[in-house]
Amino acid sequence: MSPGIGSWITLSSALFCIGLVGVMLRRNPIVILLSLEIMLNAGNLLLVAGSRYVGGNDGHVLALTVMGVAAAEVVVGLGLVVALARRGAPLDVDELRSLHG
């Protein structure tokens, strides 16, 4: 007895949207990165669920790949945050707008 794929899709999209709202709303770059992690994991969940329901392990493979990429991305992101902190810039994405046109 397992829920249909629909439930998994619903759960996954719910988590994705929560992460998305977090990215859009928070001003602290670290928390934005955390929300980004939520989004990535929601995608991973969907991948694994899909491979279970369709058959075949390809979804697992892709999920692991995504995990690796997410790790690398977190490294870069946190490195940026540390560099910013070292220079004394305010850790607030609303203040970091030198790309303002």
Binding site: V23, M24, L96, L99, H100, G101
Partner: peptide
């Protein structure tokens, strides 16, 4: 049109969403 170039990452993310 230039108000769209606010430089705020959050707004860009909002636009994408």
């Amino acid at each position: 049109l230039s108000t769209a170039q606010s430089g705020l990452v959050r707004v860009y993310a909002l636009a994408i969403a």
